[in-house]
Amino acid sequence: MNGTGRVKDMLHLYVHYVSLNVRSAMQHKASFFLQITGQLLTSCTTFLGIYFMFLRFHIVAGYTYSDVLLCFSVVLMQFSLAEMFARGFDTFSGMVRRGEFDRILVRPRGEVLQVLGSKFELTRIGRLLQAVIVFVYGVFAARVHWTALRVLTLVSMLLGGILLFSGLFLVYAAFCFFTLEGLEFMNVFTDGGREYGKYPIDVYGKRMQQFATFIIPYTLVQYYPLQILIGRSDNWVYALYPMGALVFLAACYAFWRFGVRHYTSSGS
């Protein structure tokens, strides 16, 4: 099989996995809709947090209410999309514990594709829906004037963000090859990235901004391109910054490969 044929074949298989996941989720109708509603409501608290903050203060570190809403909603979209697709890595410790990774290894397909396919979380659409609503509201409140550059920036931010959070989930999963205990600390970077990411990173000071650029590049998918979106900058290079997440993802993948080689399956 040539290159394109192989990619097509992998995509076909992935779509097949997704369809089985959706069919499985639909089997339990009540639980399916309850989960979507739950997802929609839980992240509302974050939104209310921002809302009440801005009832008191009209500007936070130079950002207006609508600026922050745009930032918050884009990050939430990035996160919920990443969670929808890469949920298999988020729940990977259970997979290792139950010995299901053995099954993946005895099948003639890449490990990443199989883990991705094992869990496609459609219920995250609830959280996504909320993000979209806040985003639309933010766009109107900020009176964003849509130019080609801004549309491109938004698409780039979403793509980069999905890659960044997926990379974090991948690292989280890779840790499971070494230890199944104490994995909670990774949530600081995944859930934490989502929670703190509701404000543009420079709000938290210079040290934080450095960390979030060079260690885990949150700023590349958030702070820099956001400047274009909220009309503070016209520098088109910022629109390309989110693609830096590819480098981060590559590093995460290297760590994952290292973990797979280290794998010793548990139990009999």
Binding site: R23, G99, P108
Partner: peptide
């Protein structure tokens, strides 16, 4: 593996078979 299933829990068996066909 007698103690571990490779079939998808919630959907008809034939669906799992068709996924294996593609895998």
């Amino acid at each position: 593996f007698g103690q571990r299933s490779q079939l998808w829990w919630d959907i008809p068996v034939i669906d799992s078979f068709e996924l294996l066909r593609d895998i």
